[in-house]
Write a protein that binds this DNA or RNA. Sequence first.
DNA 1: ATGAAAGCGCTAACAT
DNA 2: ATGTTAGCGCTTTCAT
Lengths: 345, 345
Amino acid sequence: MITGRVKIIDIARRVGVSPATVSRALSDTGLVAEPTLSRIRDEARAMNYRPNVSARNLRTRRSKAVLMVVRDVGNPFYLDVLKGVEACAREAGYSVLMGNTENQPGGEDRYFDMLRDGHADGMILITGSLPEDEMHRDLLAQLPVVVALEMVEQSGLPHVQIDNKAAAADAVAHLVGLGHRRIAHISGPVPEPMASLRERGFREAMTGAGLPVPSSYVLRGDYSLAAGKGLCCQLLALPEPPTAIFAANDEMAFGAIAAARRAGLEVPRDLSVVGFDDLYLSEAFQPPLTTVSQPRTELGRAAMGVLLDILSGRAPPSEPFVLPTTLQVRGSTAAPLAQVQLRSA
Amino acid sequence: MITGRVKIIDIARRVGVSPATVSRALSDTGLVAEPTLSRIRDEARAMNYRPNVSARNLRTRRSKAVLMVVRDVGNPFYLDVLKGVEACAREAGYSVLMGNTENQPGGEDRYFDMLRDGHADGMILITGSLPEDEMHRDLLAQLPVVVALEMVEQSGLPHVQIDNKAAAADAVAHLVGLGHRRIAHISGPVPEPMASLRERGFREAMTGAGLPVPSSYVLRGDYSLAAGKGLCCQLLALPEPPTAIFAANDEMAFGAIAAARRAGLEVPRDLSVVGFDDLYLSEAFQPPLTTVSQPRTELGRAAMGVLLDILSGRAPPSEPFVLPTTLQVRGSTAAPLAQVQLRSA
DNA sequence: ATGAAAGCGCTAACAT
DNA sequence: ATGTTAGCGCTTTCAT
């Protein structure tokens, strides 16, 4: 800490009041009368006063900070969520700390500790898992924690999310609408809830449309570019390759498109690809990616809103808060070519 | 704060020692003898003790946190830098807070305030500008602040950076080597130092190769996708359009490629494009982008290293710390077609 | 409307 | 090697 040398008592002396009055004047309690009020504020500004946060936090037993914990800070996807969280937090006088678990099993432990040691007052958890110790269900549900985007079943924690199953079904319906019948799915790391729901959305939409889902058409990925590439190769090598692929996220969709191109196919002429997430570069990608767009910033805002409710003693919603998605139809999807032609691929 | 109810005095009572001894035992001072030491540690673990950070920070007058301030958290580019900073910080027991200025003029003021109010002990500044107040040069140079990637001239602050001019010259040399003679530059927001240096690298490399730099061939952008698109259109509309473009960052390069494609040109056949930064998706882009790769994580590490030096009283290096770049040659550059053909474009 | 006094939980002198 | 004491800077009773 750069010793913010001027403290409340310095102002008090200069103005000729007690420290208590200065504190009250500076924190807008409405308990200080007008001649004094202005003099204190002016003097504080003149002296370039900044309250010492440690002292204040120690006294008030709150840090006015919240923690947003994600799987991987390196994933640009979360940045829009952060923006929403931050905007909402700032309005309420909170700052936001980022944390990431690097996808490691006990990764959230560290951040639950930060809740206990006063680093933060509450937490927005976007990792889909809970700490390994400290797992007394009923106790956990008392903590000021909101789960966003992901799901932690039976945790009793409030959730803010999208309808992954319906969104996936939408994407598939788009492909079916274009005339595709042989549609494959590159899933996320099932059995994680998010990945599972997207896969179920895929299956139900297919079944609903009377289309078959051969087991070779559903391959499990890990949301990485590399997985998209590898699994797409696998699909294209099938005796009856799909004419369309629905990937559980954009990165795998990018990978799939790269693999298709390397295999001599043109997207969307020879293969349609739909992603999920609508990443920053999905629109600039060649071809521009058709994908499910999540209201990322709004999800962040909503999650922070629920957290503020909890922190101020209001009851959080008992039902999950569900925000709508939209399918961004772009250039990576088109009607399929005649089947004969594709067999030769 | 979730009241971490168990405090040092609780442990002290259980073990039958004074709070001071517990404090010493828990902070590895080596001043507590062995029978006691273990008993204290065991008890602390058993009671699930967590030190209250506010109290500790207040007492020690340090927060053990550093601030990393960037222009835009939404820019994935900074995330790799963050990883380096965080790794190095964690080893030294520091946590990292992110801040962003949204490119607004007075944006860094807020974070300099956080230094003064005890939120953080030091700062890594990646915005290229200083707060508007508080500009007493000599005073500023005393603050525990390290400038990374960008440059703040005459600030007296330690810098960790790459050689932007040389890297830009490398990129141009690559194009010249392929046989290009009509090479244009889409620059960053000159006169910012980073943008200026890249432009100078471009100019010097061109001049050094005996190539002309008509003024219509150097257009100023703002690092955005849109700028890349727009300025590329402008270049292609020239009576003598360039056969190659060196963009001051990858996003503008992406924009340029998109614009070229829209204009009916194929990259790299009809137009070569080089970027700068080597963003996450540059490799997956179609065509894979030839670009200057910065050692982002290493830059982060190095910057944090210098900051740790300052925070622990060691003198920072007086010379800027310069890390090497590498030109990633990928698919967006190739030898130019015959000139005649291009004129018709 | 303002002041006096206590204390948040911890660590660092200064004893012993 | 351990205990005693004081105090970091602030907010908040409780008085007046």
